[in-house]
Design a binder for these strands. Sequence first.
DNA 1: CTAGAACCTGACGTTGACGTCAGAGGCAAG
DNA 2: CTTGCCTCTGACGTCAACGTCAGGTTCTAG
Lengths: 120, 120
Amino acid sequence: MRIGELAGAAGVSVRALRYYEEQGLLAAQRTPRGQRVYPPAAVDRVQLIQQLYAAGLPSRTILELLPCVDAGVSTPESLARLAAERDRIDEQIAGLIATRDRLDRVIAIASDPTHPCMTS
Amino acid sequence: MRIGELAGAAGVSVRALRYYEEQGLLAAQRTPRGQRVYPPAAVDRVQLIQQLYAAGLPSRTILELLPCVDAGVSTPESLARLAAERDRIDEQIAGLIATRDRLDRVIAIASDPTHPCMTS
DNA sequence: CTAGAACCTGACGTTGACGTCAGAGGCAAG
DNA sequence: CTTGCCTCTGACGTCAACGTCAGGTTCTAG
């Protein structure tokens, strides 16, 4: 598939795909005239990249962990790195749950009809 | 307390505190000579701001929700906004859990001594 | 064969939450 | 009184993940 199709299928921009290639995250075959060609599996890979970005990992870290996550190739170092990132995500989850619960309590109090501070 | 003390107590930089004031998130009294003075409660407020930043909220949104979360002052609009952000955080948590579980599976497979792809 | 869509490289623009530097003033200690 | 640390304003720097534009090439439908 070509870059526009991949972008549509994976839900990202064409520019983002070229950026991923620039960062070494996503390789592409080329036609004799220089246009990028991707295998169908690239869709999953792009979505994985997006998922890791969403978890707050920078390109460099994703680059280090992708062979590990994607192909199952692992060294002791990459495994440790993987575990460290997992723990970081865990802390992030815990923080978000605390924030959500705090917002929930605020909502509960503010939704209480007997609440004294309604502006309306 | 002065700005340096608050920064130390809340675990942020002096620059960050001035930035929060610039964004309208954190008011400060001033000495006759113009130096900022904060009440002890500012520590909690700064940590709340940090928590909301960590949840991915931009300054503008925090500004809209702070009176609500901090003082319990709520309008129907801010309440809806609050609920929307709560739901966004919920989705964010779900995504992070999926990512963490994916990493967990990779770690489990790669840690398996019978795994075929260990480089070492 | 030709128009228009899709693609290419290269390069500069954007945004948010600060970092950092310059230059000047304030403040307790010795 | 001066040394040294803290503070002030103002302004430019940073970094990451792209957006966007320019100027040119390639592919495809009619």
